[in-house]
Amino acid sequence: MTKFVPGDIVEVETPRGHAYVQVTHNHPSYPEVVRALAGPYEQGADAATLARLDTRFIAMIPLAAAVDMGSVSARLMGNAPVPDALKAFPKFKMSILDKHEGKRENVAYWWFWDGDTLSYDVDPGPEIEDIPPREVMSIEEFVRTISPP
Rank of each mutant, 00 (worst) to 15 (best):
A36F: 08
A36G: 04
A36K: 14
L37H: 09
L37R: 07
L37D: 04
L37K: 10
A38W: 10
A38Y: 07
A38V: 10
G39T: 05
G39R: 03
P40A: 09
P40E: 12
P40T: 06
P40K: 11
P40Y: 11
E42S: 02
E42M: 04
Q43H: 08
G44I: 02
D46V: 00
A48T: 03
A48N: 04
A48K: 03
T49R: 12
T49C: 01
L50Y: 03
A51P: 13
A51W: 14
R52Q: 15
R52I: 00
R52F: 07
L53E: 05
L53K: 14
D54W: 15
T55V: 15
T55H: 13
R56V: 15
F57I: 13
F57K: 13
F57D: 14
I58R: 07
I58K: 10
I58W: 10
A59Q: 10
A59S: 15
A59G: 14
I61T: 13
I61N: 14
P62Q: 06
P62K: 08
P62T: 01
L63I: 09
A64C: 10
A64Q: 01
A64D: 01
A64Y: 01
A64I: 15
A64E: 00
A65C: 03
A65P: 12
A65G: 09
A66T: 02
A66L: 05
V67S: 02
D68L: 00
M69S: 12
G70A: 13
G70Q: 06
G70L: 08
S71G: 13
S71C: 11
